[in-house]
Design a protein around this nucleic acid. Sequence first.
DNA 1: TATCGTTGTGTACTAATTACACAATGATAT
DNA 2: ATATCATTGTGTAATTAGTACACAACGATA
Lengths: 254, 254
Amino acid sequence: MRKPLLSHDELVTRGAEYFLRHLSLDCVIFGYHDRQLKVLLLKWKDSGRWSLPGGFIQKEESLEDAAQRVVAGRTGLAPKYLHQFHAFGDPNRGKRNHGFEYEKNNKVSWLEDRFVTIGYWSVVEFSKVIPTPDVLTSECRWWNLDQIPELILDHRTILDKALVSLRQYLNDFPLGQDLLPQQFTMPELQRLYETILGKSLDRRNFQKKLLGLNVLTRLAKRKTGGAHKAPYLYKFHSARYARAQKTGWKFGSI
Amino acid sequence: MRKPLLSHDELVTRGAEYFLRHLSLDCVIFGYHDRQLKVLLLKWKDSGRWSLPGGFIQKEESLEDAAQRVVAGRTGLAPKYLHQFHAFGDPNRGKRNHGFEYEKNNKVSWLEDRFVTIGYWSVVEFSKVIPTPDVLTSECRWWNLDQIPELILDHRTILDKALVSLRQYLNDFPLGQDLLPQQFTMPELQRLYETILGKSLDRRNFQKKLLGLNVLTRLAKRKTGGAHKAPYLYKFHSARYARAQKTGWKFGSI
DNA sequence: TATCGTTGTGTACTAATTACACAATGATAT
DNA sequence: ATATCATTGTGTAATTAGTACACAACGATA
């Protein structure tokens, strides 16, 4: 993981020399553990409030690269998939509304300007993440999706919209490669789907459907631990998974 | 239609006082006429090249309002539906790459900075549009989708992505209210769908499907003009149409 | 009044989705 | 050992959605 470009004070006073003004991005980083969908949140040093991991766009950096940099910085991982889902630009977002006013030598910081933010979501493998705060924040940790604290600005709206986008994505594209360990059982995969979609699914139909999508490879049986009948292990067929990730399952209806 | 805020020269030299720097938006305005899907394009005064209608975001204006303003400015209509589909932020887009360099008194204009642009599409009723250029452009007119000229910057990419988004939208939401006259025949509606999706559909199945969606009301017969059997006229049931526009046809599969 | 292209309509076939039940496994309790 | 229990593996029938396809009615024109 690279070191941050600027210290806290430098960012407050001279950030506008390095980044595009008025523009930020926020990343909803989803993880999955223990039948719970989780997101990484940051606690701000100055106001103590929680927010989505965010960042700014360097003057010669693409949006995608900037989002990549943010996710890498907070997780220690290079995200394998990033999805831009919406830009949020309400004029009163970001205007002295994050619970603190940044200034230095009586000069109000560029951070107090109006910001348009671009929302990305990403999915990462929970167990590999090392949650890491950035220069403006003191704490970075996972929160269960059903226990999110109050968030700054419109971050709650952004989070909600990210979830809608993720659910939509789950219907049209393969997911799981980055949320589950390499090997997993069908019930585990099903629980992931159920957790993301927020509804329960029929075991048999789920299996039929998922196998029909043709991206799973069945391995040998597993025995470890489980107090019941040992389920099969599966892994994703990476070439087919990659293809499906590009084209999706559906090609258009009506 | 409101008058533009600034003249050409004012925009070049002092635009950054009124608008957010580094940020623009581009609108893909779709119309439908004569079995053709069309988009409004603008011809730039200075380079003579064609582009999508675009604009900037006033310092106290929401993205949606700005997009609304752009569409209203080019068409004379208040768009009933606007869809934000993607933000484009390649670092070399917008850098002296629109075929002309804006400067004034040897000062390079803010227009030559790097821009991140937010893409919106909208659908409007062709016959009601009065194509109107803006202060930077000399001409505004409809182009058939299959005869688009070379466009500045990455506008071709933006247009392509807008079309993908529109097609996706057509599968999930009602459309037509803003592209067709108030009363229309089933064959007309079908041709619209076929044109947007770029494929032909079965007449009977199309009717079955569309009537099943429950947003159409059949009126009396029409006779005028048609050299053949007079088709029924339909109109949209506006309450149901509005509801479907919010929720879409599908609620999620898998 | 015959012709022609277009519209209106219904039915059989196929694929996808949903609903549902019983046998096998593997640990734990007796 | 054996019974119990929760969980996994598997298949089939019913329903719904989607696709393919053909003929009669209409309304203008020849």
